[in-house]
């Protein structure tokens, strides 16, 4: 597999039809949010982090290692300070019990939060705004434009802030120049320029979209996507996996009770099937990537 330069290369899953991308992220995020079972949480975290590393490279891996693990541990420790439920009393903190159940719940909540955040960061890379507009531009034109603008608001804001800050630096008025008062004043100026730019830019974008007939009948999209046979194949697999996971949820395989004592369903062949299906769902982009690499390898061997 020719290893990617950061720009230009797109992973296999990103080249699938936007509808599949969107459906995939919607399902893994919802599952990740609502399944607090430790096995499901672990699968979701592994899948989302692995995909984020595939999409963004080794720097993300280092960030995850140094940022994620301490934050998860911190959250697991903070939860028992406020939640004292549970039957397994480990210690007494200020005379209130510190229980194993609340630590476990804190861990689970932290893992859930980070796996969903990680899914969202993958979503930001895969679902570019042209894909989103292609999907929803005709159905809900106004809302989809607002959404796509809102979703890339923060990265654009950051980029523009850097541009403005560099410009101000040239005239000696950056937030890093001068004493504290001057720094604050310069920072306020930059913020004010930034906000002015953002407001103006939003109106300009809306005007230019209208000028080009956005939302009118018969208008085509910037990017065109074809729902080909590979997409059909992926969609079928995706639907099958989601169906198995939802069936498992309906039979309570993902249920867990944390308080007053931790209760999970015992492992059975059916729960193993559900775990496998969820694992395949969360690792689907990686599996596609692997299949593609294998295909390339075989083609090269033939040649």
């Amino acid at each position: 597999m020719a290893r990617r330069t950061r720009t230009g290369y797109r992973d296999v899953f990103s080249t699938c039809h936007p509808a599949i991308n969107f459906f995939y992220f919607a399902s893994v995020m919802l599952c990740g949010m609502f399944f607090l079972h430790p096995v499901f949480l672990g699968i979701s975290l592994v899948g989302s982090v692995a995909y984020a590393i595939l999409l963004k490279g080794e720097r993300t891996a280092r960030f995850y290692l140094w940022g994620l693990v301490p934050s998860i541990l911190l959250m697991a420790l903070v939860n028992p300070l406020f939640n004292h439920q549970g039957v397994t009393i480990l210690l007494y903190v200020n005379n209130n019990p510190l229980t194993w159940e609340s630590i476990a719940y804190g861990l689970a909540a932290a893992v859930m939060l980070f796996s969903v955040a990680s899914w969202f960061s993958c979503y930001g890379v895969v679902m570019t705004s042209d894909k989103f507009l292609y999907l929803f531009g005709r159905v809900i034109p106004a809302l989809s434009l607002v959404l796509s603008m809102a979703l890339r608001f923060v990265p654009r804001f950051q980029a523009q802030a850097r541009v403005i800050s560099n410009g101000q630096k040239c005239v000696g008025r950056d937030a890093s120049n001068g004493n504290l008062v001057q720094k604050l004043r310069n920072g306020m100026t930059i913020l004010s320029i930034l906000v002015t730019w953002a407001l103006e830019n939003a109106i300009e974008t809306a005007d230019s979209m209208r000028a080009r007939g956005f939302g009118l009948k018969g208008r085509t999209s910037f990017s065109l996507y074809r729902f080909d046979s590979r997409d059909r194949c992926v969609l079928l697999v995706l639907l099958g996996l989601v169906a198995v996971v939802l069936l498992g949820a309906a039979t309570g395989e993902n249920d867990i009770l944390y308080f007053p004592r931790i209760v999970v369903k015992p492992l059975s062949w059916w729960s193993a099937v559900v775990y496998l299906a969820y694992g395949a769902l969360c690792l689907l982009p990686l599996i596609l990537e692997g299949l593609e690499a294998y295909k390339w390898h075989r083609l090269r061997c033939k040649a």
């Binding site: 911190l74 300070l81 009393i89 480990l90 210690l91 007494y92 903190v93 200020n94 510190l98």
Partner: peptide
């Protein structure tokens, strides 16, 4: 900050009392 918060706590094992 976390250290300060925890610093005010008394921690005892269940057997202490």
């Amino acid at each position: 900050a976390v250290g300060l918060c925890l610093g005010g706590c008394t921690v005892e094992r269940p057997e202490d009392l």
